[in-house]
Amino acid sequence: MDKKEKIDRNENKGASFLVDLSHTIEDGLVTYKGLPAPVICDYLSREESRTRYEPGTEFQIAKIEMISNTGTYIDCPFHRFENGKDLSEVELERFVDLDAIVISIPFSQTKEIKKEHFINYDIKKRAVLIRTGWDENWNTEQYYENHPYLTAEAATYLKECKVQLVGIDSHNIDDSSGNSRPVHTILLGAEILIVEHLCNLSLLPRDGFTFSAVPPKFKGVGTFPVRAMAKVNTVRL
């Protein structure tokens, strides 16, 4: 049974259900070209643990070495601003059960996402998830280049609408072909959280769901992987 079939069955039961919007992180995964891939290995293997415990008892303890920009991750103000809130300082309410909307802007139609793409939607004080379809290129060479991105004008409009969070299924919410990052600057400067490298947005309805993306409570860290998810409340009759 594929993901779409599971969702259809759950909807027909009339129950809320969860949709995973995160990529899987594994050893050697490159999220952003030029940044190191994670190293995931055993610190204590099951075989080694058998020498420490009574027969029949074994454990595995993993060792992970990675940068914080790995997989599907959330950006907090500290990522861009020295005095901005870090992961430990952002209120829990900013990460969980946000009223959300998906706006579809296929990369086949445009790579440049403008203010005009948002004007006809009710986005005020919501989490805005931008579905471009670029996640189909995940973990390929194509994923890193010529990806969809927001303009500074679009970011300013989202800021004026007081959105809570902006997510995208692309490599970067900014145009990464140059060194300027106006979208990060505008959104994080307004304490609007950013989630990049989302996936599976095609499995969601346009609205009628909440969005959650909770990172660990790290001090002095402004971005970190999350298990991003949607709780879909819309029931198809």
Rank of each mutant, 00 (worst) to 15 (best):
S177T: 14
D42W: 07
S104M: 03
S108I: 09
T132I: 02
N120G: 10
L18M: 13
F17N: 03
D20S: 13
K33H: 09
G189F: 04
E112Q: 15
I173D: 03
V235N: 13
S202V: 06
I186M: 04
L237D: 12
T151C: 06
T57Q: 14
T234K: 09
A228P: 10
M1H: 09
E48C: 06
S212M: 12
I74D: 01
A213L: 08
L198A: 04
C161P: 01
I101N: 00
A15L: 11
A127M: 14
N69F: 04
R131V: 00
I173L: 10
D174W: 11
K111L: 15
F78D: 12
T110C: 10
K124W: 06
K115F: 03
E93D: 13
G56K: 14
V183D: 03
M66N: 06
A213Q: 01
Y149M: 02
I123F: 02
N139S: 11
K125W: 04
E26R: 13
D122Y: 12
W134G: 00
A230H: 08
I168C: 07
E112K: 15
K3I: 13
D8T: 10
M66P: 05
R227I: 13
E116F: 09
P216L: 05
P216W: 06
L29W: 07
T132E: 06
S212L: 08
G71F: 07
K231Y: 07
A190N: 14
V235T: 12
A100F: 02
A100P: 00
T31M: 05
R131H: 15
G71A: 13
V19E: 06
E136T: 13
W134A: 00
N179V: 07
E145M: 04
V163E: 02
F211C: 10
E116D: 15
I123Y: 00
S49R: 02
L237H: 11
G133I: 05
D75Q: 11
A213I: 07
V96P: 02
Y144L: 08
D122L: 10
L198H: 01
F78E: 15
F107D: 11
T234C: 06
P38G: 15
L44H: 04
E160T: 01
P216K: 03
I186K: 03
N10Q: 12
V226T: 11
P225V: 06
L129N: 03
Y157G: 08
K114C: 14
K3V: 11
K115P: 05
T57A: 10
E136Q: 13
R80S: 10
D20A: 14
T151I: 01
R50I: 14
I113L: 10
N83T: 11
K162H: 12
N10M: 11
S180E: 14
T31N: 11
T51Y: 07
T132W: 00
A154M: 07
D207F: 05
S108G: 10
A155Q: 02
W134F: 02
T51S: 15
Y143D: 12
L35M: 14
F218C: 01
Y143M: 10
S104K: 15
